[in-house]
Design a protein around this nucleic acid. Structure first.
Lengths: 213, 213, 213, 213
DNA sequence: AATGAATGAGATTTCATTCAT
DNA sequence: AATGAATGAAATCTCATTCAT
């Protein structure tokens, strides 16, 4: 791996573990066994590293929203949820430090805002196509509200878990619990015909979520 | 006002504005026109200030959950929502910096955990009494899930808004939008007889929420 | 007791326990339950307190060297040793912090120098009178050397013990061990006739020194 | 010289001159014309510097106790005394600040304790071999007492001198006076045959000690 | 590409001392 | 005599960043 990439990888890991403010550039360099000077050869400053990581985060989201195959919409939804939650998990430091980071970096705030808007649109689009396939029976008026709700749940589920548990140990099962929470949100709007399918899905994720906790 | 209280007030304001990590003890002292030494006369260290603010936060929550009058449960619920959202707004820095703060202060983490558990119990209790009054028609099984969902929405609504808007200007209307989001969450579980009442409530808050944005 | 005296007493106790540099004026005031302002009403500054304690130390030494009764010289010697060692013990912080204290206070250094010179003279005088009584058989030439040696042992015995033991617990027996060390120093110079008397003295102190350690 | 070594050298000089507690890390940095940050690049904290100096002190003692040639025991003894006294002089701050330093650093206290125990053993060993060579005529019982006495004299001679003199100017002659004091301590235990040799030694050191004072 | 010593601003905290009451 | 809030200088330490090699 290129040094630049190693720096990004190590930074992300350390940020997630200790919080961005508690990780110094010397920390990162020492962790990799490279010199601080070398780190600054590859990045202008610490903010530059955060910015690059943000780029990766956006690319991950893109991937999560790019359907691999054209299967049934419900499968696509689940793949979305899986992917997005996983992204949230991989970049969890980001949500914890978000206000701090955005407050001191207006350019990044602008970018973040754009990404979030697109994300919201995508969630609405998915819900709408679920309605068109007869899976959801929701009136147009409630649709943005539901989308919004889903987005908040997806965004903060990981954050919420890290502060709730006294010994923070976020694992795969916790992610599946998040997926279940989203299913719970859309359940009241399910069309009669979709109930069975969703029930089976819930059972599936419930088993995955049961490993710990 | 006593200097001690002035320090707490100024700290809270600055923390909310700039994020806890971006506010130094010198900042706070300078902001108040007192010497750094004086600040340390009233508080052992910065952590001590954060801890005192946390105490105030807990007291605010208590107050929000103490019913003023014994009116109909629905009114009580609305008063709760109002109070809790307002508390979240007043202590919004807290949620933004929570992982950092709790990570470096295990004692506080423990306290926080306790408060959160009590909070969760209270939300469940309120939902249950709404069901007993015939306002909610929800099966016992789904009740904790709904409570959990409501709690996450209440906890992160303000956080979410501060990062979503490019120029962060959280105002009263934003709080009412949060109240509306919670009403949206419980709407699918409303008993037929309660629909009208809730509709009127929604209209009421929709008007309050419309002032800006 | 007058507040002034209470301050001196508490300061001495705290200095001995924690070292002069580790005891703040606020510490002393808090320990006594008085205000820092009050402390400064009674003493111009911290140095003033140290200076006053030094005065007490000198007065203690005077007392230790003032023979109560005109018994046999040997008894007087033992009473001296007892008193002086006890003074060293009561003001032990002084020896630990001496170079620091004297370095920043030339006036005190001058006074200290004077007291030490007088002390040396007194030790010489005692040894000389022991010789005149036929207890010591020492030539005039060696007398100052012996006096000097005794003085060093008396001065540093307590200091030495505090650093040698890992858990510092200086007790009465340790003082008697110091007395024994001085007897060991003068033993080679004893007149034949005095051997028995000294032996009995040694036995006496050996018993007292045996309580611990 | 490496910066690290320069820091150690300057710290030792300043500690000796002003007392460890009166020398700040800023002092040291300013004295060397380097930035405070640079000092902390080479040492974790002030304690770390003190600890490194302690290491040097131990190494000096080792050297002083490593006989260069296998000459007569008496010569070896004198070389020991010379070396040890010189070490005491070079690290004199240490003895002055010892109680403070050890009190706040239990790990160092432990190390110090070990070194002191080894030192005591070595002094006993030297005295014993002097007896075996017929230089000392001392009974086994008194041997530890004499060793102890010698050790106290060696340990505190420099300390004593710095506080006794109003203008502290410890010079080589003062060290030779210390050597003479030790010779005075062992003189009463000399075998008849060794008297002459020791007398000549005393004369030799007396000349060296006479330069000043 | 990479090293690593060095910088300097600034953060947290301490503490002797003052002063209005 | 006494209070206690307040000061301000200074001490320890951190860390993003630079730069000669």
């Amino acid at each position: 791996m290129k040094t630049r990439d190693k720096i990004l990888k190590a930074s992300l890991a350390l940020f997630n573990e200790k919080g961005e403010r508690n990780v110094t550039t010397n920390h990162i360099a020492a962790h990799l066994g490279i010199s601080p000077g070398n780190l600054y050869y590859h990045f202008r400053n610490k903010e530059d590293i955060v910015h690059a990581i943000f780029g990766e985060y956006v690319r991950h989201l893109e991937t999560a929203f790019t359907p691999k195959d054209n299967g049934p919409t419900l499968d696509v939804l689940m793949s979305y949820l899986d992917g997005v939650f996983y992204t949230m998990w991989e970049f969890r430091f980001f949500y914890a430090s978000l206000p701090d980071i955005l407050a001191r970096n207006p350019a990044l705030h602008q970018e973040y805002f754009l990404v979030q808007t697109q994300l919201a649109d995508r969630v609405v689009a998915i819900l709408r196509s679920l309605r068109e396939e007869g899976i959801l029976a929701i009136d147009e008026e409630s649709l943005p509200d539901l989308a919004h709700t889903v987005k908040i749940m997806v965004t903060f589920w990981i954050s919420y878990q890290t502060t709730q548990a006294v010994e923070a140990a976020i694992t795969r099962p916790v992610i599946y619990q998040g997926v279940l929470k989203v299913l719970f949100l859309i359940r009241p709007y399910l069309a009669e015909e979709a109930r069975d399918t969703i029930s089976r899905l819930e059972d599936h994720y419930r088993r995955l979520a049961l490993r710990t906790r």
